[in-house]
Design a protein around this nucleic acid. Sequence first.
DNA 1: TGTCCACAGGAAATACGGGGGT
DNA 2: ACCCCCGTATTTCCTGTGGACA
Length: 412
Amino acid sequence: MLAEQKIEKQIKTILENTIILKRRYLDDEQLYREEQFSVLKEIFDVNVRDREIKELSSHFAPIFRQDHPIHLSLLGKTGTGKTVTMLYFLNLMQNLCRKSKIELRYMHLDLSTPKPCFRVLNDLACFLDAAKRYKRGISLDELMCRIEDKIRDYPGYFVLFVDEIDHVRKDLDSLLKFLVKRLPQRLSGKLVLIFSSNKLDWQDNIDPRIKSFLKINEQFFEPYDAFDLKTILSIRIKKALNPKMIQSGVLEKIAAVSSQNHGDARKAVEILSKSANIAEREGSIITMELVDRAMEEIERDNFVAMIKNSPKQLQATLFSIISSSLKSNRPLYTGEAYGTYHAFCAKIKMRALSQRAFSDLISELDMYGFIQARVLSHGRYGRTKQIIVNLPRTLLEKLKQVVLMEFDLNPA
DNA sequence: TGTCCACAGGAAATACGGGGGT
DNA sequence: ACCCCCGTATTTCCTGTGGACA
């Protein structure tokens, strides 16, 4: 056989056995806006999130009567499609408005990482080209004025979509006061605010004076059920994968597990993506068993990535807790843990924090799910947090290793 | 019934760093 | 060069507390 033909044949078999055809379609962040919208269009075309879209439409209908829709609050857990649905909807709205010669602009403020009020305003100003990125050193008022100047003369509807509003770490009140009370008064156009949050009670801690001003509609996003997830996943499979390489039932399994655990579409796609990666690496097709492994691997990677990106003090805290809990095999208490932490700090020549601060670090680790900590009273033997480490031993060892590497130490 | 342990966790103070305005 | 402003991290100080024990 000629070399040319051989190569041709080899390439052909490789292509036939490839699992991932278009990797980009497994990760939203690698898609262009248009591609994202085209995926969304397919999803929404088959009646997923139908109810929500309908309600959004009726909420925004007043625009076509030159009326002013009131503000909107999107509620629902992460991965239930608040952001994508809203963006998709706003995009459609803009097209519709263009046809009807109505001026409409929208802007998406993404707070998926927590930010203080200052950052939020700064980001907004950047979007509007009203200011450059400051780290600090400029007053809040100055930022607000610049923002106002930029949009004061805009005649149409200005829709501001503040995503994950509860992530405003400090001074949510000032931000809302600006958005709700001050900004609308100084604009010639009409301002429509949209907030999204996964906390149902995000409005509870607002200053009542602002709250009374804030006329707001609520829109719930239920977690996806297995059926929805199945359609969402199958669209991704169609776009990205070679269907011959997927064992039957895999799709159903991912959908079922995801709907039970969280109803989070993003995570479901992530599981699919990870499974495909493992399968490709091992030259097998995607099987049920691979899905299980993918889920474990995702969880492990999450923990490792989380601790890698954490401050040194948190890493040291985790290390101390893991070490002493691996040794003793019984619950740990704050005092003891602080002791080992103190010793560890001495060893790596890092300044140890006060116990007060250490206690907060423990709570933080609990929030991230590394440990379980709860206050427990032992009567006259005091009240303290009980710390339980409840992760697989292999993962704990891995985490220890990671921390040591962060501190440039050999596992000795 | 009161005591008292070993902390929890809130509030305010302090330290620090870095950028803008002048 | 200087001062002021702001955000973050941490400390200091503090009051609160469930329940075993005497």
